[in-house]
C-alpha cells in the first residue's frame, strides 16, 4: 500500500464520515463544519490526483467563500439545535431507504464497469498553465458568459436581499 492509496482511503473515509455528519448533526453550525470537512477531503482527493489548481480553487471557493456565507446566514438567523425543525421518524427512515435504494441501483448498474487505473502522478494536466491555456483558448466564451452569470447572480442577490423600504432597517452585514 503506497502513500497514494493510503491517502485515498484516508480522504475517502473523512469525506464520507463528514458527509454523514452533515446530514446527521442536529446543529446547523456543526453541519456546516462537517461540510467544510467534506470539501477539504475532496480537495485532498484533488491534490493526490495532481489537480492542484482545482484543489486550491475548491478550498477558496467552497470553504473560503460559500461555506462562510452559509455560516454567516446561520449565525445571522441564530439557528441551533433547539430551533431545528425535525421531520417525523417515519419520513427520516423513508428518506434513508430511498437514498440507499438509489445508491444500490446505481452501484448495481455500474458495478460491472471495467476498472481503469487512475494515472495518478505522471500527468500534469491539472497544473494551472495547462488548465489556463485550455480555459482561455477553447472555453473563452463560456468563461465570459459565466462572468456575466456571476454579475447577474450578484445583482439578483442584492435585489432579493434588499430591504423593503417600509420595514425599519435591520443590522445585516451582507
Amino acid at each position: 500500500m503506497n502513500l497514494y492509496d493510503t491517502l485515498f482511503w484516508f480522504f475517502s473515509a473523512v469525506a464520507v464520515g463528514c458527509a454523514l455528519g452533515v446530514i446527521l448533526s442536529r446543529n446547523p453550525v456543526n453541519s456546516v463544519l462537517f461540510l467544510v470537512g467534506t470539501f477539504l477531503a475532496i480537495s485532498g482527493h484533488y491534490f493526490i490526483m495532481n489537480a492542484q489548481f482545482l484543489a486550491i480553487v475548491n478550498i477558496v471557493v467552497y470553504t473560503g467563500a460559500i461555506m462562510v456565507l452559509f455560516l454567516f446566514v446561520i449565525m445571522l438567523m441564530n439557528l441551533n439545535a433547539d430551533v431545528e425543525p425535525q421531520k417525523g421518524q417515519l419520513i427520516q427512515v423513508a428518506g434513508v431507504i430511498s437514498g440507499g435504494v438509489l445508491f444500490l441501483v446505481l452501484i448495481a448498474a455500474i458495478h460491472k464497469a471495467s476498472p481503469m487505473p487512475i494515472d495518478k502522478q505522471s500527468i500534469d494536466i491539472g497544473l494551472i498553465n495547462n488548465l489556463g491555456k485550455v480555459l482561455f483558448k477553447e472555453y473563452v466564451l463560456p468563461f465570459e458568459i459565466s462572468s456575466v452569470l456571476f454579475l447577474s447572480a450578484m445583482i439578483g442577490a442584492v435585489v432579493i436581499g434588499k430591504k423593503e423600504p417600509a420595514l425599519p432597517a435591520e443590522g445585516e452585514a451582507q
Binding site: 492542484q52 486550491i56 480553487v57 478550498i59 477558496v60 470553504t63 473560503g64 462562510v68 494551472i128
Partner: peptide
Amino acid sequence: NIGILFVFGVVSL
C-alpha cells in the same frame, strides 16, 4: 506552483 493561491486558500480558512 500555485503558492499564491495556497496563501489565499489558507487566509480564507
